[in-house]
Design a protein around this nucleic acid. Structure first.
Lengths: 202, 202, 202, 202
DNA sequence: TATGAATGAGTGTTCATTCAT
DNA sequence: TATGAATGAACACTCATTCAT
């Protein structure tokens, strides 16, 4: 009497991932029950375990895949950018970061807000990846400083500030709202670059 | 064998609030159980209900008290600041916001991250308060723009960016770490003000 | 809307113990569900956890209480028996062991058959107690051997054999069956004592 | 990617039986899951059902095969023993029973401890076989009594006692331990025969 | 015959909440 | 006001079993 309705075969895992992303984004990881998830996918709750090992494992999978994709795209951007010009590099970083955080706002949001639900090993792994990403921005700032193009009090503080500013888009940006993605990128590029530009001597 | 340990009398509610703040900050609202909370306070779980009406009510109380305190202190700052000078107002805002978000990092963090666990009415009320706070910053930006002191693409985008940048301190700032609160405020004040300053004519 | 039917107050734990003993004896520990147990007691399944910490904890409690009672009664018997006469001591041991194993057949059966469901620490503790009990019988055998009253190949083998023989009553003895407890004790006392008596020189 | 590891063909059922015997002996029938079993065999859980019809059916098969083997070997022993001499018959019984219970300790243990997990029909069948086996011993005792060679209170009690004593070896005997199988048989033969020997007239 | 994905009932356990004492 | 014992729903997860491929 098995299998009357619902998803089958290799597509099920993708459906679970998609539904999990949606439900975790909407209700939070703790608040999402596997019954909800199974119902959204159209299978019985026990069937989830043919595809995931634990609830936490699904969360880790979603975040890890997102981090890997972030790096994959970021590495592409870096390869295409003049490594000698910190201003160009910073502009490319801002454009990439804002674009990715708008397009993948749910993955990004989960990747920040649900980190504490990860097991210690998984938590450490993801945090290490995030730190690695942050160091790229810090390196750009240091390069700009050593070339006399950027000026700031402390590179880490500046980097965290810039990242917070840019990442914020995933909480308030609405895809078809008043502002286009390009307008946001332009506004933030100006603010950040002006904010880092050393004051001119009169 | 009643009441051998634990809090009694009018101090109990304050102990509940304090323990709740700690546990929600550490584990999240959904992940905190009332048994944990009662244990932290030193009473039995049933006794909590002499002081709170529901678990959600405790969360609302914590967030509401925090928002009220935010406004109370903010109103004081505004009263002490020259309302005609947008640069002074913005500096005062940055100093206040960063200071408050460092001193009250747990309340602030909860006030952002656990909003979705509030009942609709409570959610709307808190979000309305937060919007009201944001509008103060937007007003400062508009004033600066109309005086030709500030320049930016879009006031809301700029305001959200600034708020994200400043609010971020509550996630990474460590009280006795490498950087003092004053250094952070100085770095961010410079970045924000330079970031908003219109480019000089050559 | 709480507490409409079922057990209340301090009597509940005793009801749980009694029902647990019955159900574990009848179906085995693994096969007994806490829903069955709660239903037998007349409470909801969640209410069990006001009295036990885990299912295994209930099993341990039942076995531990039984072992303690075994030793309590055994110590009384030993105090009442002439410590110099191994034949008297052995007779007293047989009478006590059979009696206890008939009266407490369910506790005894569980104490043997469900040991493997105990956590390692609990398992070790109970096995150590059982070994201690066995050593009392081995000591009687050694005493009888050194006095030339008993004769056997190996004391441990003999002791395990005697214990197995006597303990077996808890699996086949029926309280109001064909044979009285006294008949069983008499039959086994004769068999064991004759079995240990050294062959007479012709 | 089918069938890269694991058993195939006609050997699979034997692998299932072997793994089932091991797992049921170690964890108990209720506690053994078919997933564990399949994993031990090296196949997927669904594949088990090409060889067994239900989990209970596997248990029944293991116990039934063991009982049949017990009778097969026992019948051989009986054919080789002088049917007129109850002492010889009892010695042969003891030797056989202990040997079989040492060599097949796992089958024997399961055959006792997991009986209650059998379906009623299977349970009745196995219990009937066991009673038949027991009656052989009772018959030996009766023969010895009628020839004046054995003396005991009640034949069934004596028989159950002897069986319990002998069967106990499967719980404590260690193949390469301090004692050899022969020593155990000698000790028990002496104890049982002396235990049944009528007291000599002075 | 083996696989992998499904079912639906079940597991022990925890939850927020209630209330007589 | 605090306690301890109760409720009933929910939780993540496992179970034996089925079956199209």
């Amino acid at each position: 009497m098995a299998r009357t309705i619902g998803s089958h075969g290799p597509k099920t895992m993708e459906a679970i991932r998609k539904a999990g992303l949606k439900l975790i984004y909407e209700h939070g990881f703790e608040a999402m029950s596997l019954r909800q998830l199974a119902s959204e996918v159209g299978i019985q709750v026990g069937s989830l375990y043919n595809h995931i090992s634990t609830k936490e494992d699904l969360l880790y999978d979603l975040i890890k895949v997102h981090m890997d994709e972030l790096f994959r795209q970021f590495d592409q951007i870096r390869a295409d950018t003049d490594a000698q010009d910190p201003v160009e590099r910073l502009k490319a970083f801002i454009t990439f970061h804002v674009t990715y955080h708008i397009v993948r706002k749910r993955e990004v949001f989960i990747g920040y807000s649900e980190l504490r639900s990860l097991e210690p090993n998984h938590y450490e792994e993801i945090v290490a990846l995030r730190r690695q990403y942050e160091r790229h921005l810090i390196a750009i700032l240091h390069q700009g400083e050593s070339q006399g193009r950027f000026h700031f009090g402390d590179a880490s503080v500046a980097a965290y500030g810039i990242l917070s500013m840019l990442t914020g888009v995933c909480t308030w940006f609405r895809p078809h709202g008043r502002l286009s993605k390009e307008q946001v990128i332009a506004t933030y590029s100006d603010m950040v670059l002006n904010g880092l530009t050393p004051p001119k001597a009169p």
